[in-house]
Write a protein that binds this DNA or RNA. Structure first.
Lengths: 219, 219
DNA sequence: AATTATATTGACAACAATGTCAGTACCCGG
DNA sequence: CCGGGTACTGACATTGTTGTCAATATAATT
């Protein structure tokens, strides 16, 4: 059977049942699996065969839906981006006009931690795949605008002068940086200094409070 | 010449000069090249052949010095760790007993940005290669201790009560998180909101000031 | 029921990357 | 000048991964 001359003409397998999904459903399944692998195993765990095995399909099926591995990666990025954007904006815009930053901070951190979004995006940035993708522009811009709006409102009510916009921007940047950092090195750091789950919560609250004080008391 | 039967008995190349380094020198060269590639191209740019080509040697030479690719990676990690540790500690311990956090913050950010150390370590964490390596424990612990010491001193001079140690810890964690975050997403974020190099500097100063105020005014 | 469209598959091709090995050139100490 | 140790190399082996292709099964439509 070494050099058997059956290029492509053998019934061989009468074969059995085959699950057939809608294209959309299949894409979702694949993306979910890829996301999970990425979050758990890191960038090098993103192999078509593995993903395929995880959900019980063959790897060419993935190629069929995403053209190439690169296509899959791009789709992954796109989804993560829009998901993140939605989460953030609803978190910020969501009904409650509380001036308390605590909730916001919590939301931001969780949105990034959730499903390893931050890890995914970090990896994207580390591999330099970010230039093409201009969505970031909008996200960050929108968020800062929303924040500044709230802050201005709040300041007016309290009879204070509208705070500098750059100050608001810096608060947002710090939060973003910290959240990203935490998503990556957080666990390690916490473990290194002997912080448990509850300690991490305390840290987040501490940070929120720090921002809160600055929010009100801003020079 | 398709199936030429010359398994390993052909003079073929009289060959020319060959550079011969000391083992130590060679290792350093290789590590530098690897580091550079990692910082520029990200994790996927770490291919033996590429590194070898960069410094004009053959890839088995790398294998010769590091056993395997994994060996190279481990050496890379180890070096980055000790370098980081040294930089941080000298930065903190360095003569000037200034209570001004600005310098410290600057040092931390720069130590992590420098040569892509943060990117390297991030990648290490993303690929989950961190468990084995317990150096982090010491680094973070030492730093927090040093900080707390300074803070206690400073508080005593000012006649204030010694601040809570967890508070100091949280300041350190925030700084570390922010620095890591900035190293990864910083450039992108800054670009997204239209901050130039000078803006980034302003941001760091702003952050340092925030910490400074907290340092003195601690609840 | 027949037809069409396409999601899915197994086998294979092509390529890239690490790792192995025998041999070669350079340095150093006699 | 000679001999031993070892940094280094070219060619090859091996393995793993993406991508291609023809064939097949399944759902929807007519």
């Amino acid at each position: 059977m070494s050099t058997a001359a059956r290029t492509a003409a053998n019934p061989a397998k009468p074969a059995g049942k085959r699950i057939r999904r809608t294209a959309e459903e299949a894409r979702r399944l694949i993306l979910d699996a890829a996301e999970k692998r990425l979050a758990q195993q890191g960038p090098e765990g993103l192999r078509l065969q593995d993903i395929a095995r995880d959900i019980g399909i063959s790897h060419p099926a993935i190629l069929h839906h995403f053209e190439s591995r690169e296509g899959l990666v791009r789709a992954l990025i796109a989804r993560a981006n829009t998901q993140l954007r939605d989460t953030m904006l609803t978190a910020l815009g969501g009904g409650h006009a509380s001036s308390d930053a605590t909730d916001h901070i919590g939301h931001v951190f969780e949105a990034l931690s959730d499903r390893g979004t931050a890890r995914l995006l970090s990896w994207l940035l580390l591999t330099g795949r970010a230039t093409e993708n201009s969505t970031t522009h909008n996200i960050m811009g929108e968020i800062v605008d929303a924040l500044q709006l709230r802050r201005a409102e709040y300041a007016e009510k309290a009879g204070k002068p509208t705070p500098d916009k750059e100050d608001t921007l810096f608060m947002a940047m710090l939060t973003a940086n910290a959240a990203f950092g935490e998503a990556i090195v957080g666990r390690q750091l916490a473990e290194a200094v002997g912080l448990d789950q509850d300690g991490i919560k305390r840290f987040r609250n501490w940070f929120a409070k720090l921002l809160n004080e600055h929010w009100d008391g801003g020079k």
